[in-house]
Write a protein that binds this DNA or RNA. Structure first.
Length: 849
RNA sequence: GCGGAUAUGGCGGAACUGGCAGACGCGCUAGGUUCAGGUCCUAGUGAUCGCAAGGUCGUGGAGGUUCGAGUCCUCUUAUCCGCACCA
């Protein structure tokens, strides 16, 4: 760069403010957008293809955190990109606003949950507007308001009618901190999902359940269809559903035992090993155990002990490592295949809530059974020979256990000689034929317990009448309103039970006195269908209009954290399948494509109050502006990876925005310029070329990988290119039309990611049209093409030279150019050329000896 | 134990179909501008040997395929995440 030109770069006049002032620009556009509430509204009668982009709705905790900002920045960028590409975009937002934190806050601050929640919503909505997210607020959904939760109640009634909502007394998960029941999905490693250090207790309670297990097979099978979902999430759901095909087999105890019966039904996936079953193991809580030990005090005490051990291990989240321990009941049960009586044990590692709570123990072919048999000296009998082994050698010195499926049966009566797979089929069939067993499928997935002994949730619309028993609230009486002014404590028991005006009602059937159900629904009910409500948020006749849902669904792109991979996303899928069955929707799945963004971390750790590494979005917006905050959250890492927040990084973004801004200020253009007639100067051509290359790169990233970090890099490169041509620009070598195109394109490319700034730039180019709906720039391959390209020349794979050839040079021309290069010649002097590989437009490799 | 992912400069990351490793940003160094300072502009910045020209090494590790490997194959290590005596 010539010395005399350097003043160009600092055209500072003390009286001219060429500083990029984010606050001024952003406030200006907020005011404008505020005056046009329909700006982001989805079209009611569209003539365009639809696109439904959705970010998971937040819990209104009081303030947005950086994870939200990242989530919404991704979604907003996508929504804006789709708007610019002519789609009818649905981009709504709402509030998952029931839940325990509101009650905790109520206790702490003596503020009613409703007040606290609605205040938080107002504050967070203001933050979202300040950040410039483009939501259709006319469709806002607030789940804690009766116009929404009445439809939770309506759905509950539909489930009830269909026999899919039922009440059952059972062992349930209880969090003492929350003072309520938790669903299985809300127990993480034996701990409460909200209280990571609080072990979940088991309590026997009468609860409402939704029969999600009815859809277990379909939920599993349809994971196949979800090719737009991350593999990880599909695998997690698959594991959660935990389908296991096996056989139920009855072991007869011989004679009457007690109320629980006289047979033990075991579940096994390996019936082929049943000739090696040398004992039966029962879960300590198996009902038949009581009958077996009832007469023996000592045994009873030992079983109690096993129950306690198991419970302790479960609560410590350590059931997987429990030291195996059991007691012999003194009883024997008949193996129906061999006819022999095998001892019946009770063992602490057998789980009552999986399978039947009873197993046949095959020490030779199961690691756990082997370990147990060794400890208690139980018989170990080999009945499978691994296919790859030498039979005699193996039988002489077996290295047990053989758990392989790839083997053949031995010592198994008429089934000997069969492969494991064939034996499973044959033996299951035999069991069914003889009536002592049958093939079956078990799932790890359990029905969804939705009762919560809490106040701040949807009242369950059921009534208990002394005369008529359980009576559903009629549809016409919905909503059952959650009363205000309810004293909230964590004392246990449902707070609503202490509100006589709520509790006492009349029976819808007989008109006599009755009591309402006082438990409320799990908040995951709210989020299981909220996205349908967005399609018809004002409807007071139905949760939504089927035709509207049919237009918008499935969600084209759903974006949120992976922590919902099981809970929310499995419940929503279940809900959709139920809605399909009652004719409300046509889609089989709610979400076509799912994106799980990474966490925002700081100094290598998740942001948390206790570590003190929280970065507040408000502070970032105040210091750097919303655009810089959003842009940095897209730039610092690809969206699916964790993002380590670095303040110096966002400063770099701010610098970049300043550079762009000054380029616009320094080069005001006349919009009415004509295209130049003369050929472009090399400098102008370079800008134009880079411009079109950038359009391609940014467009490709938006359509494919969503690597917004590389989109932004590409735009930075473009701006750097323009800066390096600044002398030529100042010297008039770049026609105004090229500068104008560059400026317009930069505004358009930045529009999805930095909306305030892009709108300001757009206006600076003299545009008055709405940037939100301005057409996305078109890439012109001819303009992006290079005239000349640099071809690396390798000798034996090592870089030895560079040649410049015309972009359309033939293979032979490239080869000749490479062989004519001085450095190359020096390097191959005295050597024999074996062959020359020319990859057009890429490189030359000379193989020599 | 099972399953999923990740590993590239001082840092965040790029290299999408095998073809110049380290784009872009941060940080750092030097020069300039402004100057109270921040700002702003320019140049440099993987390691290493060399005064230089230039060379050598280099994408967690070990092998392999190939003219050519961060990218493909085999094995392996570490870290993160999910599930877990699931019978």
């Amino acid at each position: 760069m010539p010395q005399e030109d350097k003043t160009i770069f600092t055209p500072r006049d003390e009286h001219t403010d060429d500083r990029y002032d984010a606050q001024r620009i952003e406030q200006k556009w907020i005011a404008r957008w505020q005056s046009d509430p329909s700006l982001y509204a989805a079209e009611a009668h569209p003539t365009k293809p639809k696109y439904y982009v959705l970010e998971m709705l937040p819990y209104p905790s009081g303030a947005l955190h950086m994870g939200h900002v990242r989530n919404y920045s991704i979604g907003d960028a996508l929504a804006r990109y789709m708007w610019m590409n002519g789609y009818n975009v649905l981009h709504p937002m709402g509030w998952d606003s029931f839940g325990l934190p509101a009650e905790n806050a109520a206790i702490k601050n003596n503020t009613p949950p409703k007040e606290w929640t609605l205040g938080n919503i107002a504050a967070m909505k203001a933050q979202m507007k300040r950040l410039g997210f483009g939501y259709d607020w006319s469709r806002e959904v607030t789940t804690c308001l009766p116009d929404y939760y009445r439809w939770n109640q309506w759905f509950f009634l539909k489930f009830y009618e269909a026999g899919l909502a039922y009440r059952k007394k059972s062992k349930v998960n209880w969090c003492p901190q929350c003072a309520t029941v938790l669903a299985n999905e809300q127990v993480v490693g034996g701990m409460c999902w909200r209280h990571e250090d609080t072990p979940v207790e088991q309590r026997e309670l009468e609860q409402w359940f939704l029969r999600i297990t009815k859809y277990a097979d379909e939920l599993l099978r349809d994971l196949e269809k979800l090719q737009g979902w991350p593999e990880k999430v599909r695998v997690m759901q698959q594991n959660w559903i935990g389908r296991s095909a096996g056989t139920l087999v009855d072991f007869d105890l011989g004679g009457t035992v007690g109320p629980a019966g006289s047979t033990i039904t075991v579940f096994t996936t390996r019936i082929d090993t049943i000739f090696g079953a040398t004992s039966v193991q029962l879960a300590p809580e198996h009902p038949i155990v009581r009958d077996l030990v009832v007469r023996n005090h000592e045994l009873r005490a030992q079983v109690e002990n096993l129950i306690a051990e198991q419970r302790r291990a479960k609560e410590a989240g350590d059931i997987g490592n429990i030291e195996k321990h059991g007691v012999f009941t003194g009883r024997y049960a008949k193996n129906p295949f061999t006819g022999e009586a095998v001892p019946v044990w009770v063992a602490n590692y057998i789980l009552m809530d999986y399978g039947t709570g009873a197993i046949m123990s095959v020490p030779a072919h199961d690691e756990r059974d082997y370990e147990f048999a060794q400890k208690y000296n139980l018989e170990i009998r080999v009945v499978i020979l691994p296919a790859s082994s030498d039979p005699e050698e193996t039988m002489a010195e077996p290295e047990l256990p053989f758990t392989t499926m790839d083997g053949i049966l031995v010592n198994s009566g008429e089934f000997s000689g069969l492969s494991c797979a064939d034996a499973i089929a044959a033996m299951s069939a035999r069991a069914a034929e003889k009536g002592f067993g049958k093939a079956t499928v078990t799932f790890r997935l359990k029905d969804w317990g939705i009762s919560r002994q809490r106040y701040w949730g949807t009242p369950i619309p059921m009534v208990y009448c002394d005369k008529d028993g359980l009576v559903p609230v009629p549809e016409k009486d919905l909503p059952v309103i959650l009363p205000d002014n309810v004293p909230v404590t964590l004392a246990g028991g449902s707070p609503l039970a202490g509100v006589p005006s709520f509790l006492n009602t009349t029976c819808p059937k007989c008109g006599g006195p009755a009591r309402r159900e006082t438990d409320t629904m799990d908040t995951f009910v709210d989020s299981s269908w909220y996205f349908y409500r967005y399609t018809d948020a004002q409807n007071d006749k139905a949760p939504f209009d089927s035709a509207k849902a049919a237009y918008w669904f499935p969600i084209d792109q759903y974006i949120g954290g992976v922590e919902h991979a099981i809970l929310h996303l499995i419940y929503s899928r279940f809900w959709t399948k139920f809605m399909r069955d009652i004719g409300l929707v046509k889609n089989e799945e709610p979400v076509a494509r799912l994106f799980t963004q990474g966490m925002v971390i700081k100094d290598g750790a998740k942001m948390s109050k206790s570590i003190g590494n929280i970065v507040s979005p408000d502070e970032m917006v105040e210091r750097y502006g919303a655009d810089a905050t959003r842009l940095y959250s897209l730039f610092a890492a690809p969206p699916d990876r964790d993002l380590d927040w670095q303040e110096s990084g966002i400063e770099g973004i701010q610098r970049f925005l300043g550079r762009v801004y000054r380029f616009f200020l320094r080069n005001p253009v006349n919009r009415d310029v004509n295209a130049p007639t003369a050929p472009l100067s090399p400098a102008a051509r370079a800008i134009q070329r880079k411009l079109h290359q950038t359009i391609k790169r940014v467009s490709d990233d938006f359509q494919g990988r969503w690597h917004f970090n590389t989109c932004i890099s590409a735009i930075m490169e473009l701006v750097n290119e323009i800066y390096s041509a600044e002398v030529a620009i100042a010297g008039g070598q770049v026609p105004a039309s090229v500068i104008l195109e560059a400026q317009r394109t930069i505004a358009l490319l930045l529009a999805p990611m930095a909306p305030f700034f892009a709108h300001e730039l757009w206006e600076m180019t003299g545009e008055t049209s709405n940037l939100l709906k301005a057409p996305w720039p078109k890439y012109d391959a001819a303009l992006a093409a290079e005239d000349e390209i640099e071809i690396p020349v390798q000798i034996n794979g090592k870089l030895r030279g560079l040649v410049i050839v015309s972009a359309d040079a033939t293979e032979d021309q490239i080869k000749q150019a490479a062989l004519a290069d001085d450095k190359v010649n020096a390097a191959i002097a005295g050597k024999q050329i074996v062959k020359v590989i020319v990859v057009p437009k890429k490189l030359v490799n000379i193989v020599s000896r």
